[in-house]
């Protein structure tokens, strides 16, 4: 189920990947269940679709990045102040739920799939892209409710991690082939412009480089 759903969701981006002589073994998620993984890969590819401007989130291995992040202290809420009581207040006073990112994903994905099933009789991953976009927009605009989690809270968590996965150093599992940086025009770890700072109007000629020395 996992493999099928994942491939279905990521089909377009897999096709646009450069050919490799030895295709790598598919990534096996450690945190997300097969059903959750199917949601995640499908949603990521809608948030950053492959198009004429560059690769999509699946080609950049954004789902892998998010799964790997779920094993870090951040995902357990270790960097957030998580002392009770949890009192809800106006939005501008910030996040006040007792849920760490791992909980937000568990509950949020279940909620998204429940809405997909109620409206369309199928899980999110099996819907047509236009229907997936409608559900994502519903979550973004806080029109869905997942128990005590406003859907926009889940959506913002997902979107933030998707952006991180596409544009962080590949050491964290995303931005495969430096595709995110190349699309944006960000040179990554070059980090030396002594000779370029005052070449006004000149095009910077060097491609991106990662912390590990990978170039694009």
């Amino acid at each position: 189920m996992r493999g099928l759903a994942g491939i279905a969701a990521c089909g377009t981006s897999l096709a646009s990947r450069p050919a490799r002589s030895h295709p790598p073994a598919p990534y096996v998620p450690r945190f997300f269940t097969p059903i959750e993984w199917a949601f995640l890969t499908a949603a990521c590819d809608r948030l950053i679709p492959a198009d004429e401007n560059g690769p999509g989130a699946c080609a950049l291995d954004v789902p892998r990045f998010i799964d790997m992040q779920m094993d870090t202290p951040y995902a357990f809420g270790a960097q957030w102040y998580m002392q009770a009581p949890f009192v809800q207040g106006p939005d501008n006073l910030g996040y006040q739920l007792p849920h760490a990112p791992r909980d937000l994903y568990r509950r949020g994905i279940a909620g998204m799939n429940a809405h997909a099933a109620t409206r369309h009789g199928r899980p999110f991953a099996d819907l047509a892209p236009a229907l997936q976009d409608d559900l994502l927009r519903g979550a973004e605009n806080n029109r869905l409710v997942f128990g005590d989690i406003p859907s926009s809270v889940f959506f913002d968590q997902l979107l933030a991690n998707v952006m991180e996965g596409a544009f962080s150093d590949p050491v964290h599992g995303g931005n495969t082939g430096l595709g995110g940086w190349t699309m944006l025009g960000f040179p990554g770890a070059r980090a030396d412009f002594m000779d370029w700072v005052d070449r006004y109007g000149a095009h910077y000629p060097l491609g991106s480089v990662s912390i590990s020395g990978e170039t694009a």
Binding site: R46, L47, L136, F167, G180, M183, L184
Partner: peptide
């Protein structure tokens, strides 16, 4: 301005926060 920050900033006001329109505006 680094890449994740640029992605979060996105495009001009009114640009969606995701999808192809976001991508074009962000770049």
């Amino acid at each position: 301005v680094r890449a994740i920050a640029a992605a979060h900033s996105g495009g001009p006001p009114g640009t969606p926060r995701w999808g192809s329109a976001w991508k074009a505006g962000m770049i």
